[in-house]
């Protein structure tokens, strides 16, 4: 009986472990194997080459620029998301007329799959038939046509903007949750102590919200770093590789150019980056909070 007691928790997590291990562990093992091999387009392993795939990838200037751009992309999208989501959540936390409508509207971008959202925005930003140009013209903000996707200088910021917009709902939801967990009476206490609203925000709300912002940052970094459809649908990493991030570079490598080996190497590098970021960030936050 006692043995059963002790085994019970393990038995309860066993199915989740098994399924996750099978569906994620096996492909991961495959990826490691491929990253060390000379593989044909069609997955035939011609031999093992050690770290040659990694060396080849790191020698590719496109990889290096994609790596830098991935950092830019992740920082810009996650940063932008937090900057937009925090005030939005604060407003949505207020009691005002039509709040549930406002909350539903803010949530809407979450209801469109990323690929479809990217398609819609690509169409909206179309140089000739897109409503973005048409609207800007009718507002008198410009006269001609802007070919948004023609250059990285305009395309990449647009992609970042779309990235922020689709990440906002999830983050707002987390932050709203955080706000609703802050007990109302501390504000009353604060106002009795004569704190201004701004001070209450600065010294009460923000610190309490911090752990939720952190959660939003970690999860968004993971999702945004791996986010494929927006850039692939809108510019496919072009023109001249100028909008590639690692995940689009990897896809092109694996399926356009038919090199699964180096592609597997890129995926492992990506995994290592996200993993170390998450671990370091979580540690740092834990230390800061305990200090």
């Amino acid at each position: 009986m006692r043995a059963v007691r002790r085994a019970a928790p393990l038995l309860l997590i066993l199915p989740s472990l098994l399924l996750a291990l099978a569906v994620i562990g096996y492909p991961l093992y495959e990826m490691i194997r491929l990253s060390l091999a000379d593989v044909s387009r069609f997955g035939q392993i011609r031999g093992y080459v050690g770290l040659a795939n990694f060396a080849r990838v790191f020698a590719d200037p496109v990889f290096l620029s994609a790596l830098l751009r991935t950092l830019e992309w992740t920082i810009a999208v996650v940063g932008g998301t937090v900057l937009v989501a925090t005030p939005t959540a604060l407003i949505l936390h207020q009691n005002f007329w039509g709040r549930s409508l406002a909350r539903t509207l803010v949530m809407l971008p979450w209801a469109i799959s990323l690929s479809m959202a990217a398609i819609v925005w690509l169409w909206a930003f179309d140089g000739d038939h897109g409503m973005v140009n048409a609207s800007l013209r009718s507002l008198g903000l410009m006269s001609g046509n802007v070919q948004w996707m023609a250059r990285a200088e305009t395309a990449f910021p647009v992609e970042i903007g779309v990235g922020i917009l689709v990440s906002v709902p999830f983050s707002v939801t987390i932050l709203l949750g955080g706000l609703s967990s802050i007990p109302g009476d501390i504000y009353e206490a604060a106002s009795i102590d004569g704190a201004s609203r701004l001070q209450a925000f600065r010294f009460l709300t923000l610190p309490l919200l911090r752990s939720f912002i952190n959660i939003a940052i970690v999860l968004n970094v993971i999702y945004v770093f791996n986010s494929f459809p927006i850039i692939w649908v809108m510019t496919q990493g072009g023109p001249d590789n100028s909008t590639h991030i690692l995940v689009t570079y990897l896809y092109e490598l694996a399926f356009r150019l038919g090199r699964p080996g180096p592609a597997a190497a890129v995926s492992l590098v990506m995994l290592a980056i996200v993993f170390s970021f998450t671990m370091i960030y979580v540690r740092l936050q834990a230390r800061e909070q305990s200090a």
Binding site: G127, D128, H129, N145, R151, G238, P239
Partner: peptide, 20 residues
Amino acid sequence: EDGPTNYTREDLQNLFKQGR
């Protein structure tokens, strides 16, 4: 046309169809 790097083959064909 303005900004060729914004035009795929399909986009060009569409322009042509519209007489643009």
